[in-house]
């Protein structure tokens, strides 16, 4: 443990209101602490800059799942394990379930939360591509009230997002319109389990009469933030999935991504694999 532990404080607020009140009273000082699977790793390495945390793990307002005719709404504290156990999610939102199943292993899935994965804002996180494909909305709450934002525009630049001091992610809402879409998810990591993504691809499309009527594509680890591949989507809409459109779509993707070399992989690898996964996605749509 490389951190100077006595410097770190943590409190357990009674309820959401108390938590938001605490955050409002000293703006930017108190940070939420959920499952700790990101924060404790930083602490261990002596790299956790913030020192005051609010333990939100027990806040009932941030837990639970609700299913209405239009939406599935997930509390920010929904763990990866809970995602995989939910029947509606398994049926209609397989990409999110796949992402959850491929995140860490059992112990991490028991503690890691969707809200934490979003707020940690890593470009290599695995649930964000799925959330973008499903056009998730997230509810952000503060002492001043609540707002809903489209998740696709939530991350602005590397590790920056549309979340201000004093705000918490409360819920994530998914539209139940994708059940009939063809869906594709592939995470390429350093190994098969317990791996950080070198690249992650999530895609879904509504195929009507052999043509792509609508399509959503998002990728992890290919840009400073999780990437919503809007230009590829535009190009594919109305087309038949097949070799005719493949090259153009791959070129569009190539122009849209900006991968880097790091200790886990290389930019050329990420570029090539991104193209190949796009091809595989189109095969799924054609099949």
């Amino acid at each position: 443990m490389r951190a100077y532990l006595p410097a770190y404080e943590m409190e357990t607020p009674r309820d959401l209101e108390a938590a938001l009140g605490r955050m409002a009273s000293e703006p930017g000082v108190w940070r939420p602490f959920a499952g700790g699977t990101d924060l404790m790793v930083l602490l261990e390495a002596g790299k956790l800059p913030h020192q005051k945390f609010l333990n939100i793990w027990n806040l009932a307002e941030l837990r639970g799942m609700e299913v209405s005719s239009e939406h599935v709404t997930l509390g920010a504290l929904t763990t990866y394990t809970e995602v995989q156990r939910n029947k509606t999610l398994l049926r209609e939102f397989p990409l999110l379930c796949r992402a959850a199943a491929e995140t860490g292993s059992v112990a991490t899935q028991n503690r890691g939360t969707l809200g934490g994965n979003i707020a940690n804002a890593s470009p290599a996180a695995d649930s964000p591509p799925a959330l973008i494909v499903y056009d998730a909305e997230i509810e952000i709450v503060s002492a001043g009230g609540s707002r809903w934002v489209h998740y696709a525009s939530f991350h602005t630049e590397y590790k920056k997002m549309n979340l201000h001091a004093g705000e918490l992610i409360r819920r994530i809402r998914l539209l139940r319109t994708h059940a009939q879409w063809k869906q594709y998810f592939r995470k390429v990591g350093t190994r098969r389990a317990q791996a950080i993504s070198k690249i992650c691809f999530a895609g879904a499309a509504r195929v009507e009469a052999g043509r792509i009527a609508d399509v959503r594509i998002a990728l992890g680890s290919v840009a400073p933030t999780v990437l919503h591949a809007v230009r590829v989507e535009e190009l594919l809409r109305g087309q038949r999935p097949g070799s005719a459109v493949l090259q153009a779509a791959q070129d569009a993707l190539n122009a849209e991504i900006a991968p880097i070399d790091d200790m886990r992989s290389t930019a050329p690898y990420r570029r090539n694999v991104a193209r190949n996964l796009l091809a595989e996605f189109l095969e799924v749509l054609a099949g």
Binding site: T37, M40, R111
Partner: peptide, 21 residues
């Protein structure tokens, strides 16, 4: 959180005790 040598059960769920405050 990588190796699991610290695995314990907490309220019946497997967790890595190195990541639990």
């Amino acid at each position: 959180g990588e190796c699991g040598a610290c695995s314990i059960e907490m309220d019946g769920a497997l967790v890595n005790s190195c990541l639990v405050p």
